[in-house]
Design a protein around this nucleic acid. Structure first.
Length: 632
RNA sequence: GGGCAUGUGGCGCAACUUGGAUAGCGCAUCGGGCUUCGGACCCGAGGGUUGCGGGUUCAAAUCCCGUCAUGCCCGCCA
């Protein structure tokens, strides 16, 4: 099922192809080349354009202008593509407004809420992991970027017919948790605020103490006891982590971010995933136990074998990568290899699951692995998407390389590292250890951010004359705030670093979610005033589409599905924010110039355009995890 | 030392994967627009050697080589 813009492009492509095959078959132009040569036309030069003449020109050493001319004049037109002319070597075509309107509106009528979705994923199962924050501190704005990216990519993939499972990985066995546990056991202050906040602050304190006193051996000992699982320390650490994760998930829920399952590191150890993975690697001769020298008693993988997979491996400072340390504990990479084998169903784990929350606001339960509980089936995916900072590129590459070495080439290529740039603050970093996230005055936690932005939104909402029912103010302000925050992160391409600024976070003007939400609310009012009910447009209605704004808006609405596909295949939500901003901007211009209710003959068509804009805006924002409001 | 990412008007971004027509958008600045469907809006103006230097091409922000700057990574940390 293709979207309107794609259908028309296909039609244009086949016309061009026909002409090229007939006139210039000796140039050896492929169908793909033709498809890629097509783009929107320059304003004033028709609607759709191909630059294929230049490619032919190169092959045949003839002037592109001449080639374009003969292509344009040799084409049989269709109802949709009604004229073609050459211009500076381009072949420009016009689309028939009436036909296009019919195409778009019948797609909307047919597909309704599914209008922006597509069938790319073909039902394939994808396990997406985010944000995997250590269970010892509150989410800060860096973690929030991860969570928002992950949530959106999950939504976009689901809209692209993937069977999406959202998973969060909880590393409750790390040294960081041992440090927190040490603080919990040895320091006198007791929790007096949101638990993740308190624990995170305490973690900063423990690090200060570590710089002054020799407590590291105690912490290492704690970490070891934690890994033994059935110890008192292990139980305390888990309960500490669980309290913290519950607090973190309050934040997640406040932002409307949900998961299907949490997988805990300690349960991975309990399920003996690692042992199975190591055994398999040894058996295949990829891993080896070192008996002497620097790595005596370690299990390692030699990266010599993966040279050529990526340039990163060409000159590593060290060829040997330790998987299991001489003391018998596993490194991060080893755990990740084992975990990914589970994700793909290569090895099974006897995980037990508990229901953490019967019903999240999205209507679905949240499961968690546990020491005991029922069986359930998670994982066994075809694609594993990992939303992880760009700093982890190297270990992610090793993971892929090792999986391929063991013989799982397909699975390896189906690990997608959605790599994103870190979030910084002006003149500092968000270090957990040093407490950069605590800030001065305002902290940089996701909770504080939401509070601040919500307060600002409430100010504006309260002064709005459009909101007569003031009891809704809080709800509206919250939706606006969440939208503004998510959009602000999503509009920037993932690979870019972002420097957080309060000033920008608190600005709801043009390049923002509120701008798009405003489009929705305004549209809604028009339809309300007109007493609009969706109906089948008549031929006469289709005929009222005017060039310029009516048609521009129509064309943009026709690009919705294609936009979602692009965002999906590139793992770049900013494709959608761009689209939404352009759509809203175009709608604003349409709104200024084109009377709708007083549109005379064009009234029904314009009402349908308004309704379509509204629908697409709502659907696209919802992919970004942003709710629209009726008044604002 | 090696690898990766980033570098686009004063500021924040888009276009780079797939080379195409006049490099788009927002903020800020300056000037306009509400007795007409919602001003969280719209219209107009000024502001660009796309870090720098080469190369390929009819055509380069986009591809190649080199170079500079910034950040990250190259651990028996995670």
């Amino acid at each position: 099922m293709m979207g309107p813009s794609q259908q028309v492009r296909g039609e244009f492509a086949s016309l061009i192809t026909e002409a090229v095959k007939r006139l210039y078959s000796e140039a050896g132009i492929s169908d793909d080349q033709i498809l890629l040569s097509i783009s929107k036309a320059k304003p004033g030069s028709g609607d759709i354009s191909s630059s294929i003449s230049f490619g032919i020109s190169k092959q045949l050493k003839r002037a592109p202008q001449e080639i374009a001319k003969s292509i344009a004049s040799g084409v049989k037109f269709t109802k949709m593509i009604t004229s073609m002319k050459d211009e500076n070597g381009y072949v420009n075509a016009s689309i028939n407004e009436r036909e296009y309107a019919r195409l778009v509106f019948s797609a909307i009528a047919e597909r309704g809420e599914m209008y922006t979705s597509n069938s790319m994923g073909k039902g394939r199962k994808v396990l997406i992991e985010f944000p995997a924050v250590n269970p010892g501190k509150p989410w800060h704005i860096g973690h929030l970027r991860n969570a928002i990216l992950g949530d959106t990519i999950a939504n976009v993939m689901a809209a692209s017919s993937y069977n999406v499972e959202r998973e969060d990985y909880i590393d409750d066995l790390g040294l960081q948790i041992a440090e927190s546990l040490w603080g919990y056991m040895n320091l006198s202050d007791k929790p007096d605020k949101k638990f993740d906040q308190w624990l995170g602050e305490q973690y900063v304190n423990v690090n200060k103490i570590m710089a002054e006193r020799e407590i590291k051996p105690q912490i290492d000992a704690l970490a070891k006891r934690m890994e033994e699982l059935d110890t008192k320390e292990a139980r305390e650490a888990r309960s500490l982590s669980e309290r913290c994760v519950k607090a973190q998930y309050e934040t997640a829920f406040n932002y409307g971010i949900y998961h299907d399952v949490m997988i805990w590191e300690s349960d991975i150890v309990r399920a003996k995933l690692l042992a199975k993975a190591m055994a398999m690697g040894m058996e295949k001769g990829v891993f080896e136990k070192v008996t002497a020298g620097k790595y005596a008693n370690c299990i390692v993988v030699n990266l010599e074998k993966v040279k050529g997979v990526a340039k990163d491996f060409e000159n590593p400072s060290e060829d040997t990568k330790v998987l299991v340390r001489s003391n018998g504990t596993a490194t991060y990479v080893a755990k990740d290899i084992a975990f990914h084998m589970w994700k793909f169903g290569i090895i099974k784990a006897d995980f037990h699951y508990n229901v953490m929350l019967e019903r999240q606001e999205n209507g679905k339960p949240l499961y968690t692995t546990a020491a005991s509980g029922s069986d359930a089936v998670f994982g066994e995916a075809e694609v594993a998407v990992n939303v992880i900072g760009s700093a982890q590129r190297y270990p992610q590459l090793i993971l892929k390389a090792v999986l391929e070495l063991i013989g799982y080439k397909k699975e390896s290529s189906n690990i997608v590292h959605v790599s994103y740039g870190e979030v910084g603050i002006e003149g500092g970093s968000l270090s957990g250890r040093k407490g950069g996230w605590l800030g001065e005055g305002k902290s940089f936690t996701a909770d504080t951010l939401l509070e601040e932005v919500k307060a600002k939104a409430l100010e504006i909402v309260n002064s709005s004359e459009k909101i007569t029912d003031k009891s809704k103010s809080g709800e509206i302000a919250k939706a606006v705030a969440i939208g503004a925050i998510k959009f602000e992160f999503l509009r920037i391409a993932p690979e870019k670093r972002v420097t957080f600024s309060w000033e920008r976070a608190l600005n709801f003007e043009s390049s923002s979610a509120p701008y798009c939400m405003y489009t929705y609310a305004r549209s809604k009012r028009i339809l309300e005033k007109a007493g609009y009910v969706a109906k089948q447009l008549s031929e006469a209605d289709y005929g009222t589409v005017e060039r310029d704004l009516d048609f521009e808006l129509l064309k943009m609405i026709g690009e919705a599905q294609e936009t979602v596909e692009k965002a999906c295949s590139e793992y770049r939500p900013n494709v959608i924010t761009d689209y939404l901003l352009n759509l809203s901007s175009l709608f604003s211009r349409f709104y200024e110039k084109m009377p709708v209710i007083k549109g005379g003959n064009a009234k029904d068509l314009r009402l349908a355009l308004v309704s379509a804009t509204m629908g697409v805006t709502k659907q696209a924002l919802s992919l970004l995890g942003i709710d629209v409001v009726d008044y604002m």
